[in-house]
Design a binder for these strands. Structure first.
Lengths: 220, 220
DNA sequence: TGCTTAAACCAATTCAATATTGGTGTGCCT
DNA sequence: AGGCACACCAATATTGAATTGGTTTAAGCA
């Protein structure tokens, strides 16, 4: 039998320069290069795969290194373990710092959109639409941080929040009152971001969320 | 002028059966259906969009309902969109606040375990084991926040971090030097938590992560 | 028999070309 | 002015062909 296809293969891996993603040529080409049949090459590749130095997938190819993790941040698990109080705690811990980054990195267009969301929220004729614009305001602040990972975490947080807060949508009054506490707080946040004042922005967001939290308690 | 294109459009929305994703026909078709020019239709659609009953995007179409935020709880998606610099930015924004919560809420047992992780990290004979204990230290701090949602977000952040930082494992020296900068920084963090001093804990963690970040830059 | 090779086929995936779609401008008409 | 038809653009969707790991089959060779 072909005595050491595996050794030959390892030699190839050592010598050949692989693209930065670690992909190595398809089986058919590689078999020709190494002057081996495909079946034998596959056996060697199988052992490499078994010992973890290589991973492969139909249609994608064969790669050296570790298989990319396919773990989802299980939002359902978080939802089951947490509660509205924790959600507010997490928001109070997290969002002010996101806001600080936003104040330092937001583009002019993003500041304009944040301000637009604020105005639309103030003018919202129903609570439904108010919350829609409020959500969008907070998320645009996340985008303005210019950090896609922070944005991803914020989205996760919001997904959990929506799942936890579900069902208890406010429908008591028809529309947010003109002196709704959030309006002034939103303005302070937007002002601080527009001023590029990170500390003030973080403080304003923290005050806003604390205010939301206390009103949540009042509602029960 | 066409007096009530908007009313006609709303009538269409009410009568016509939309596909379950809420997509409505493209502008050109819709204009013909309603027997209106595209420009006027666009004006009506613009108001609908402004009042939030509709969202639109180039290439996608026009949809009724809320714009779906492209929430990526998918860690792989986060990994692909982010980079090591963003990861450090997110850690610097997020972990200090988690540490603050930990200082306020940690149990005695958790403080003891955090301290234990710190000692084990100092004594680690290899970089591999050092990072293992370092990871566990940071995660125990997350547990000590007593907020399962914060912990979940921290886990997500760490999963992304591991995936992004993968492959560039340090192997230069055999073991962390005795005067490694992290050791003193870890002690400050643990002290502040043990003192129940939230602000000091957050500051210490922030200094620690900034230090890690600067050393990362030096490595290049 | 026992093992390899070559070839054909399959399903998952990628890739490139094409078609749609919202956004924008221009000229023409009333 | 304002409505309309038309042409263009950039972002997105869609489609079809090519690629790739996996599997089977048959032939070749010891």
């Amino acid at each position: 039998m072909e005595m050491d296809v595996l050794a030959k293969l390892k030699g190839f891996l050592a010598s050949a320069e692989l693209p930065d993603d670690g992909r190595l040529p398809p089986e058919r080409e590689l078999a020709q290069s190494l002057d081996v049949g495909r079946a034998v090459l596959r056996k060697a590749l199988a052992t490499l795969q078994a010992e973890g130095t290589v991973w492969r997938h139909v249609g994608k190819g064969t790669f050296v290194g570790d298989r990319p993790i396919d773990t989802f941040a299980d939002i359902n698990a978080m939802v089951q373990r947490t509660n509205p109080l924790e959600v507010m705690g997490a928001r109070i811990a997290f969002e002010p710092e996101v806001t600080r980054c936003a104040a330092l990195n937001a583009t002019g267009a993003q500041i304009a959109e944040i301000r637009n969301c604020m105005i639309k929220a103030q003018q919202a004729p129903t609570w439904r639409q108010y919350e829609q614009w409020d959500n969008r305001l907070h998320r645009t602040i996340g985008e303005a941080s210019q950090n896609s990972l922070l944005l991803g975490l914020l989205d996760t947080l919001n997904a959990v929040r929506r799942a936890v807060t579900w069902g208890r949508l406010r429908q008591t009054p028809v529309r947010p009152p003109a002196d709704h506490h959030s309006f002034a707080e939103h303005e302070q946040i937007v002002e601080a971001i527009a001023d590029r004042d990170g500390a003030a922005a973080a403080d304003a967001m923290r005050r806003h969320l604390r205010s939301v939290e206390s009103h949540m308690r009042d509602m029960r």
